[in-house]
Amino acid sequence: GAPPLPPYSAGGREVTMKKGDILTLLNSTNKDWWKVEVNDRQGFVPAAYVKKLDSGTGKELVLALYDYQEK
């Protein structure tokens, strides 16, 4: 199953993602919540729920390892 959710501390809205989604990583300075862009929406997802990909394009991409439903 998915890892436990860290307390929400990102101070911005969250976004929903599905397992297998490829998201653009915008900011990973917060260790628990990373800012991503998905379907032209920006928001935060739990860092433990995604994995960085080596895209080779200069853009940082992450793979959704679990479904996440915004609150």
Rank of each mutant, 00 (worst) to 15 (best):
L53S: 03
T16P: 12
D67P: 05
K35M: 15
T16R: 08
F44S: 03
K71E: 13
E37T: 07
A64Y: 01
P7C: 12
N39L: 10
G58L: 11
T24F: 11
T57Q: 14
L5M: 10
T29F: 09
T16H: 11
P3G: 05
L61V: 09
A47H: 02
D21G: 03
L26R: 04
S55K: 09
P4W: 06
Y66F: 12
L25R: 01
V50I: 06
A47K: 04
L63D: 01
A48L: 12
F44H: 04
K71N: 14
P3Y: 05
G1V: 08
L61G: 03
E37A: 11
K59D: 10
L26H: 04
T24Q: 08
G20N: 05
G58K: 09
N39H: 10
E60Y: 10
L26Q: 03
S55P: 10
L25Q: 01
G1A: 13
D67V: 02
E60S: 14
G12L: 10
G56V: 13
R41N: 12
A47P: 02
L63F: 08
T24H: 08
W33I: 01
K19S: 06
D67E: 05
D40Q: 12
T29Y: 08
G58Y: 09
G12T: 06
W33H: 01
K59C: 08
L5R: 10
L63P: 00
A64G: 03
Y66I: 04
K18I: 07
L26E: 02
T57C: 10
W33F: 03
N39R: 12
V50D: 00
K51R: 13
S55G: 12
N27L: 07
D21A: 05
G20R: 02
K19F: 04
K71I: 10
P46G: 01
S28H: 08
A48E: 09
T29E: 15
E70P: 15
L5A: 07
V38Q: 14
R13T: 10
E37V: 08
D40P: 03
D67T: 06
F44E: 02
K35Y: 15
L23R: 01
W33L: 01
A10E: 06
A48R: 12
L26M: 06
K18D: 03
V45I: 09
L63A: 04
L25F: 03
K31M: 12
G1D: 14
F44P: 00
D54H: 12
K18R: 14
K59H: 09
K52C: 07
K31S: 12
K31W: 07
D21V: 04
G56W: 10
I22W: 03
E37D: 07
K52Q: 09
V38I: 15
E37H: 05
K51F: 07
G58R: 08
Y66S: 04
D21M: 15
L61D: 04
A2V: 13
P46Q: 01
G43T: 04
S9N: 12
E14S: 15
S28W: 09
E70D: 11
W34C: 02
K18H: 10
K18P: 01
A64R: 01
E14M: 15
V15E: 03
S28P: 05
T57P: 14
P7N: 09
K71L: 12
D54Y: 13
A48V: 11
K71H: 14
G58D: 14
L25G: 00
T57V: 13
A48P: 04
S55N: 14
Q42S: 12
K52D: 04
D54G: 14
Y68A: 01
K52P: 09
G12Q: 07
D21S: 06
L25S: 01
L23D: 00
T16F: 10
L53W: 07
R13P: 15
M17I: 14
D21Y: 05
S55I: 12
K31I: 09
L65W: 03
K52M: 11
D67Y: 04
S28C: 09
N30W: 05
N27Y: 05
K71M: 15
R41D: 11
A2N: 09
E60R: 13
D40R: 10
Q69F: 14
W34H: 02
D32A: 07
P6D: 03
N39D: 15
V36K: 00
G43E: 03
N39T: 08
D40E: 13
L65M: 09
L25M: 03
T16D: 08
L65A: 03
L63Q: 10
Y8F: 12
G58M: 09
N27D: 15
L25C: 05
R13G: 12
T16S: 15
L53Y: 09
I22A: 03
G20I: 00
G43H: 04
K35S: 07
L65Y: 03
G20S: 02
K31V: 13
D67S: 07
N30K: 05
V36C: 05
V15D: 01
K18S: 08
S9C: 11
K19T: 06
P7K: 08
V45F: 00
A64E: 00
P7D: 11
D32K: 06
R41A: 12
R41H: 11
N27P: 02
E70S: 14
P46Y: 02
P6Q: 02
A10T: 12
G12M: 12
N27Q: 11
T24P: 13
W33E: 00
Q69C: 09
L5Y: 07
E37I: 09
N30G: 10
D67N: 06
G43F: 07
Y49E: 00
L25V: 06
A10D: 05
G58P: 09
A48W: 05
N27K: 06
K35L: 15
A10F: 10
S9H: 14
K51V: 13
E60M: 12
G56P: 15
V62R: 00
Q69D: 14
A47I: 02
V62F: 05
K18W: 09
K18E: 05
G58H: 11
Q69N: 15
V62P: 00
E60P: 14
K35G: 05
A10P: 15
G11V: 11
K59L: 12
E37Y: 06
E37R: 10
Y68S: 02
T57F: 10
D21T: 06
V50F: 04
Y49K: 02
P7G: 08
A2Q: 10
S55M: 14
Y49L: 05
N39V: 12
G1C: 12
Y66L: 04
L26W: 04
D54R: 09
A64K: 00
P7E: 14
L65Q: 04
S28Q: 09
A48T: 10
G20E: 01
W33T: 01
Y49M: 05
Y8A: 09
N30R: 08
I22Y: 05
Y8H: 09
A10W: 07
V36S: 00
Q69K: 13
T24R: 12
L26V: 11
V45D: 01
E37M: 10
V45E: 00
A47M: 04
V38T: 15
K71V: 13
V15W: 05
K51L: 14
V62M: 04
M17R: 00
V36H: 00
A2K: 12
G43A: 04
L5C: 06
K59S: 11
K51E: 08
L65G: 01
G56Y: 14
D40S: 14
Q42A: 13
L53V: 10
W33A: 01
S28A: 15
F44G: 01
G20T: 01
L63C: 06
Y8L: 10
K19W: 03
D21P: 01
Y66V: 05
K71D: 14
S28F: 06
G12P: 06
I22Q: 04
Q42V: 14
G1Y: 07
K51I: 12
V38N: 12
Y66W: 13
T57H: 14
P46A: 03
K35R: 11
L23H: 02
